[in-house]
Design a protein around this nucleic acid. Structure first.
Length: 289
DNA sequence: GAGTTTGAAACT
DNA sequence: CAGTTTCAAACTC
């Protein structure tokens, strides 16, 4: 029951009469809202809310949240339909219940705003990476490394013969795009006509990944590099995941005799590397012009 | 363009 | 989890 409305907020009395210490005070300004939000979040951790409400507010890692928006959810947006509290429970609410719901909804709105801000920061971070990687685009091989909107002629066609373009071997599938007319693949299922098969394959890969727990990264996010295992090519040829992406090898790599590390290297080795890059640039530009 | 080499992905 | 096989791209000639 709403008891008192002031400029700073309102009291909701659980009983009758004037506002008391134990009454619920709903502040208006942002600072006090923040306190309310903390109260609300605390209640969550103490399992005071229904399971459905808890599920909706499990904190999601920032990048995972962004990446998940870009990958699977694109195809499964229908899972994201949100239902209001009233829709979930059609029973009529008392004024007090409505007020409490309003508080919860306010808190959720605040959270969503915060998530949006975080997303914007993440997008900015990704864009920064993209800028760096775009400069090296001529150096990349078959992957659309930066996930940026690529021109049709920038996509490299695949030549898959046995996997129906439904495995990560296929660069088109790996980048979550359909095979093109330029592709020379056999019996391709990644042609837009077998969407069910594609989704199944994606699901399978994601499930396998979860079981294996090899890394927390998204296999379909080719921006991410989690380390190569090169043995013979010293990470200076197109076989190397890091080299392809224009990245230096890190401690995450399991490569041997690596010459693609950040530390200062001998002149000769640097020359070998830059020769490789120059060779590819020449090749690419000669094709384009 | 055919054959070889390579490392990632998949499999056992 | 480690070893093996399969795969498609990179490379060489």
């Amino acid at each position: 029951m709403i008891n008192k409305d002031s400029r700073n907020g309102m009291f909701i009395s659980s009983s009758n009469g004037s506002s008391k210490d134990e009454d619920l005070f709903v502040p208006k300004d942002n600072e006090q809202r923040e306190d309310k939000k903390q109260e609300f979040l605390q209640a969550q951790t103490q399992s005071q809310l229904s399971s459905s409400e808890l599920i909706g507010d499990v904190p999601v890692p920032r990048l995972t949240l962004f990446v998940s928006q870009m990958s699977l959810d694109e195809n499964q947006g229908y899972y994201k339909k949100q239902m209001s509290l009233e829709a979930l429970s059609p029973t009529k609410y008392s004024p007090q219940q409505k007020q409490e719901n309003q508080i919860r909804q306010d808190a959720q709105e605040i959270k969503q705003l915060e998530i949006q801000e975080i997303k914007q920061v993440d997008i900015q971070e990704v864009q920064n990476v993209q800028q760096i990687q775009t400069r090296r685009k001529v150096n990349k091989a078959n992957y659309n490394v930066d996930n940026s909107p690529v021109e049709e002629d920038e996509m490299k066609p695949c030549h898959c013969t046995k996997t129906h373009c439904l495995q990560l071997y296929c660069s088109c599938f790996h980048n979550r795009r359909q095979c093109m007319s330029e592709c020379k693949c056999n019996d391709c299922y990644n042609d837009g006509q077998h969407e069910e098969d594609v989704l199944k394959a994606v699901e399978q890969i994601k499930m396998k990944e979860q079981r294996a727990s090899h890394h927390d990264l998204d296999s379909f996010d080719t921006k991410q590099v989690w380390g190569c295992k090169c043995k013979k090519t010293k990470c200076v040829k197109g076989y190397c995941e890091c080299f392809i992406r224009g990245k230096k090898c890190t401690s995450h790599c399991q490569c041997t005799e690596c010459e693609n590390k950040r530390q200062p290297q001998k002149k000769q080795k640097n020359n070998q590397q830059s020769n490789q890059v120059n060779k590819k640039i020449k090749k690419k530009t000669s094709v384009q012009f």
